[in-house]
Simulated assay, not measured.
Amino acid sequence: MSIRPGDEQTPNELPEHGPVLERIEPKPRDLGDNFFVRRALPAIEKRMVGPFIFWDEFGPVQFEAGKGMDVRPHPHINLATVTYLFEGEIFHRDTLGSAQAIKPGDVNWMNAGRGIAHSERTAPDLRATGFPMAGIQSWVALPEAQEESEPFFKHYAQSELPVLEEGGKVVRVIAGKLFGKASPVKTYSEMFYADVQLDTGASLPLDADHEERGVYLVEGEIEVAGERFERGRLLVFRPGDAVTIKAVTPARFMALGGANLGPRHIWWNFVSSRKERIEQAKEDWKAGRFGTVPGDDKEFIPLPDR
């Protein structure tokens, strides 16, 4: 997906005590054709959570017959995009020649590295019938040593991801390590990312050993240190504090975090530790040096004017 320059949040007043350091309420963003997302990162008060530098929730939305997602080819550098669906399907294509449908519970992991362009569309057969869609797309910054790594795309089926199921909780580890489970997804830094579902009254501790930790509440209501939170909130926890998340109602949230990689610059779809690298990426996109997306080479998203 795509971000517009300057598309960030305004800061909230922060609590002085307690495990919840930040409470970020995403704001809607229109990606075109009345398709809205809710963007939690980057935010002025917290630009990153571990390596996560971008966070969009989309849906739930019901597309009518003839409608669908149409994110035209656009470029990325020095990051990895991560797409995870709750409902629906998205068809991915990129300049490497990848062509892959993603369905709920699967993971599409695209390492942009030194540069890649991709599109995200609705396949014709699904567009013809209409369908529901909901999910998360996030961007993961790469360590400086891997920012210019070779681009690659890898699809992981839901069946490949490890699951912890006990005591009223189901935890699917999307990337990194959590609760002794390790995802097969290839990453370049210490991180964790998981899809968590809790029955009413069930609880989940979040290991304080991780440098930065957060949860994004997708469904239901949870309680942390006596405070209740409803869906559509990104909670960032104070480093080192013990955190236990309890479900007040049946709840679903994404747990995310990992090592702090240091500051990153972000402009449109480009992320880098170096400002001059972003300037180069702008020129490369304008000059067509990212290449074309096979099977989707008739249009593209132009470089923004600002």
Rank of each mutant, 00 (worst) to 15 (best):
H17Y: 06
P19K: 06
P19T: 04
E25F: 14
R29T: 09
D30R: 03
F58N: 01
G68Q: 08
V71H: 04
V71C: 06
V71M: 11
R72L: 13
P73S: 08
H74T: 06
H76K: 09
T81W: 06
Y84I: 07
Y84G: 09
L85K: 01
L85Q: 06
L85D: 08
E89L: 12
D94T: 05
L96N: 11
Q100E: 15
I102D: 03
K103D: 05
G105Q: 10
V107C: 09
G113Q: 00
I116F: 13
A117W: 12
A123M: 12
R127H: 02
G135L: 06
G135S: 07
I136R: 08
A141K: 07
L142P: 00
P143L: 14
A145N: 07
E147K: 08
P151F: 12
P151L: 10
F153P: 00
H155Y: 15
Q158N: 15
S159A: 15
S159W: 05
E160N: 11
P162S: 12
P162T: 10
G167R: 15
G168E: 14
K169I: 13
A182R: 14
S189T: 14
E190G: 00
Q197I: 02
Q197C: 01
T200F: 08
T200H: 12
E211C: 04
R213P: 04
Y216W: 10
V218H: 04
E219H: 06
E221F: 12
I222H: 10
I222T: 09
F229Y: 15
E230N: 07
G232D: 05
L234P: 01
V236F: 11
V236C: 14
F237D: 01
D241Q: 10
K246P: 05
V248L: 14
P250G: 09
R252A: 13
F253L: 04
M254V: 15
N260C: 06
L261N: 12
L261V: 06
I266G: 11
I266C: 04
N269S: 10
F270V: 11
S272K: 08
S272W: 01
S273R: 05
S273C: 06
E276V: 15
R277C: 13
I278M: 12
D284W: 15
W285R: 07
W285H: 08
F290Q: 03
G291Y: 09
T292F: 12
P294L: 04
I301L: 15
P302R: 10
L303T: 15
R306Y: 15
